[in-house]
Amino acid sequence: MTSPLQRKLKISGPTAITANRLADGVVVWLTSGGAWSMAIAEAAIATTGEEVQRLLTLAHGDENTAVGAYAARVEVTAEGRAAPANLRERIRVNGPTIAPAA
């Protein structure tokens, strides 16, 4: 059976690696330096399958900091920064779209 890391990744555009921080579940993004940041704008942006694969391997090797890492499609801002590309990632970045019970 092929492990998820060995499968060939299909990349449809700019991609970043995201996960949840082990200690509290907070959404984090992998930076080009291999650290985790809470700011998506600091995420490393990959555009090839090989690069995404390399970053994912890096992420999965750091599961004592962040867990459940996966590749998420992102948009690139005029400043060249990553931004969420779909509703799920917008909610992960910005929090629930609703106010909790008051």
Binding site: N20, D24, G25, V26, V27, V67, R88, R92, P96
Partner: peptide, 9 residues
């Protein structure tokens, strides 16, 4: 009973 959801445990 502990799940990891979108934003937190």
């Amino acid at each position: 009973g502990v799940y990891l959801q979108l934003h937190a445990y």
